[in-house]
Amino acid sequence: MSLIELKNVSRTFGKGDERVVAVDNVSFAIDEGEVLCLVGESGCGKSTTGKIVAGLLEPTRGQVLFDGQDIAKMDKESFRRYRHSVQIIHQDPYASLNPTQTVRQMITRPLLRHHKARSNEEAEKRAVELLEIVDLTPAQDFMNKYPHQLSGGQRQRVSVARALTVEPRFIVADEAVSMVDVSIRVSLLNMLSRLQDEFNVTFLFITHDLALAKYFAWEGRISVMYLGRIVEDGPTRRVVMDPRHPYTQALLAAVPEADPELARRKRRIELRSADIPSLLDLPSGCTFNPRCPYFVAGVCDGEVPPLVAIPEGGRVACPIRKDVSIQLIEETPAAPAA
């Protein structure tokens, strides 16, 4: 049984002409101890999906199962257990901590409220332990600090420590390292990986950065979202090394590489249109069809293509290209791009 499962989850915002389908019929399951990366560009619905998983937003349609139980039908006690088991880490280290509270207040309050500590002394001790787990040492130096006295990386660590107060089994990390300086990013990712190894925490890692997804979820899976739908998923190695959906391929080809040689030799994929369709007026069929270089009239703009399993692992929502591999690196350096 999976720890978290989404069954045909949709979420709309607004009414009438302003109605937007942010998440459209998304299904996936995450096993205990696993890492799933949700990848996509802004507006693809990945953050909305994350909030639905974390129980902070209700789906308009579909079910969210936790330990096999539908969270919408849970009794108070089971919902409380679910609520404490799933925590979220936000993107912006400047917005995720209350500027008027000290680190001590932020961490001891949940401990005391949920009886994870019976006295102030015990809460204090536990807070120090948690800060050490997230590598904020010596912990005592941080207890009296306000958020503005911490660097971006340190704030994200406090966010993680705060989430750990309720001993979660599942963490939704929504672009959790995107706004942190490059040199610190890796140590944050490694710290999160350690939580996975040592405490068996399951992760939904949401990011727009494919390279980060690849690094963090190398042993896990990646789901690629585009305009509210999952277009491809599968084991990270397969998705990154042998992408099949034209959108995944375009993304991988477009990501700038921090390596001049790679940058010169990376294959270019020309899209038919540079514009992302508005969520208010989505194209019929596959929503990528107006931009897709492999567009076939009558097929791509008809029915919404379903996710179909492929033998190499995972699913692809493209009947045209699901069995075709492409090379992302040219054998010889490409001529200067025109």
Binding site: K51, A54, G55, L56, R80, R83, H84, V86, Q87, I88, H90, S96, N98, R109, P110, R113, H114, S159, R162, A163, T165, V166
Partner: peptide, 8 residues
């Protein structure tokens, strides 16, 4: 939102 997730 974090405080909501922490059920405070």
């Amino acid at each position: 939102e974090a405080a909501r997730a922490l059920d405070l």
